[in-house]
Simulated assay, not measured.
Amino acid sequence: MEIEILGPVEIRMNGVSIVPSAGKPRQVLALLAIRAGQIVPVTTLMEEVWGDDLPRSAVTTLQTYILQLRRKIVSTLPAEQGASAKDVLSTRFGGYSIGVRPDVCDLREFEQLSAQGTTALDAGDARSASSLLGRALSLWRGNALMDVPMGRVLEMETLGIQEARMRVLEQRIKADLQLGRHAELLAELRVLTTQHPLHETFAGNLMLAFYRSGAVWRALEVFQQLRRTLDDELGIVPSPRLQQLHQAVLVGDPALDAPEYTADAPLPLVAA
């Protein structure tokens, strides 16, 4: 089995897609796949598909969806092996489970590469960290499960995955700044600050990249834009960390040129 959820969903058995075209069976399969190897209770599956508006026929309808998925699975199984769809999608203790371990799962690969990259960054190996974290991010083909209708359960699942993606992106940028790649990061960081106008770390690292590229006025402009946006949207000012970075840019603090300094670094690196 191959499971890809970091973009449009792709789930294949023996190279053949088993993803149904109908929305609700697709939801059921996506939730079972994202929790492959675990038992997903019937109540959880029904909550995902119908939320609080459970029809009287919910249990029967869910069983129909499972039957449809098993038919998809059985069409991919070699007849000579005598395998059953119930060996793949089994009924277990009040729920269902995709009981086979996927040969390929992009989410698991993303998590493994991310963990390795974080370890390398913590150990001071920015070059390995940038490579590993970059490989992790390259697995994404769009938003997670972007072509699957989502109820409460899948929304929570994908929210956590998307937040992990953002953390990995922040770490990869941190590694690249430590490697002196500030000029190469300018275009990416400008896009990210436009897409996430309230994200202080992206804004701070763009300020740092501009400063190290000799464009001090642009670094100050980024801070002013962030301050206006925070005030307009939330009625707050930038954090003390960003205010201190702003002050350091104004006075040309030498600490800003230290390779280990990035916008999420401890405040003592920057002079008051």
Rank of each mutant, 00 (worst) to 15 (best):
residue 152 R to S: 15
residue 64 T to P: 00
residue 19 V to P: 13
residue 25 P to D: 03
residue 168 V to R: 01
residue 266 P to A: 07
residue 206 L to Y: 06
residue 248 A to G: 09
residue 237 V to A: 15
residue 69 L to V: 00
residue 15 G to V: 06
residue 240 P to E: 00
residue 18 I to M: 07
residue 53 D to K: 13
residue 226 L to D: 02
residue 160 G to K: 03
residue 134 G to A: 10
residue 262 T to N: 03
residue 267 L to M: 10
residue 162 Q to T: 08
residue 209 A to Q: 08
residue 267 L to R: 03
residue 234 L to G: 09
residue 145 L to T: 07
residue 103 D to Q: 11
residue 80 E to Q: 13
residue 155 E to W: 01
residue 225 Q to Y: 13
residue 161 I to W: 10
residue 228 R to Y: 12
residue 266 P to R: 05
residue 134 G to H: 05
residue 54 L to S: 13
residue 158 T to S: 04
residue 55 P to Y: 03
residue 110 F to S: 12
residue 86 K to A: 06
residue 234 L to A: 08
residue 108 R to T: 06
residue 193 T to A: 02
residue 212 R to A: 03
residue 165 R to K: 07
residue 48 E to Y: 00
residue 123 A to R: 14
residue 263 A to H: 04
residue 257 D to T: 15
residue 68 Q to S: 07
residue 100 V to E: 13
residue 103 D to M: 09
residue 158 T to V: 12
residue 229 T to S: 12
residue 267 L to Q: 10
residue 34 I to E: 06
residue 220 L to N: 06
residue 25 P to W: 06
residue 215 A to Y: 11
residue 208 L to A: 06
residue 55 P to K: 15
residue 92 R to N: 04
residue 202 F to Q: 04
residue 91 T to P: 14
residue 215 A to E: 11
residue 186 L to Q: 08
residue 199 H to S: 07
residue 132 L to C: 03
residue 148 V to E: 09
residue 101 R to E: 12
residue 160 G to W: 11
residue 215 A to W: 10
residue 71 R to V: 04
residue 181 R to W: 14
residue 64 T to S: 14
residue 128 S to E: 11
residue 107 L to F: 02
residue 98 I to A: 02
residue 236 I to G: 03
residue 263 A to D: 01
residue 195 Q to G: 05
residue 236 I to L: 11
residue 45 L to H: 05
residue 200 E to G: 02
residue 11 I to D: 01
residue 216 V to Y: 00
residue 250 L to R: 08
residue 228 R to M: 08
residue 1 M to L: 12
residue 205 N to S: 04
